[in-house]
C-alpha cells in the first residue's frame, strides 16, 4: 500500500489539499482536503508507512482508543482509495 506519485499535499489557508500533478485540469470537484490528522497520516504514507505505522502515528499523536483509531485509519484509506490516490 503506497501513494501514487502524481499527488502532492499542499497547505492553503489552514486547509490541507491533495493536488493532482500534471493533469490539464485541476479538478476541485471531489478533490480531497484533509484536516490536521489526515495530513499527518498522509505524511506517514509518503514516508512509506504501512497500515500499522498509520495506527501507531495516530495513537501516539492523539488521545484515541485503539479500535477508534483503527476505524479512522480504515476510513482515511477508503477516502484515499476513492480519490484514486493509492497504488496497492
Amino acid at each position: 500500500m503506497k501513494l501514487k506519485e502524481n499527488f502532492v499535499l499542499r497547505e492553503v489557508a489552514d486547509t490541507w489539499v491533495v493536488l493532482p500533478l500534471g493533469e490539464a485540469t485541476l479538478d476541485f470537484n471531489g478533490m480531497l482536503s484533509l484536516n490536521e490528522s489526515g495530513a499527518m497520516l498522509w505524511r506517514v504514507l509518503e514516508h512509506g508507512g504501512n497500515r500499522q505505522a498509520l495506527l501507531d502515528a495516530l495513537t501516539a499523536e492523539y488521545d484515541v482508543a485503539q479500535d477508534e483509531a483503527q476505524a479512522d485509519v480504515e476510513s482515511f484509506l477508503q477516502k484515499l482509495r476513492q480519490a484514486g490516490c493509492l497504488a496497492e
Binding site: V12, A13, T15, V17, L19, L26, F28, S33
Partner: peptide, 9 residues
Amino acid sequence: QLESLMPLI
C-alpha cells in the same frame, strides 16, 4: 472553501 483556495486556482 474556494475563496481560501484562490491562490491555488
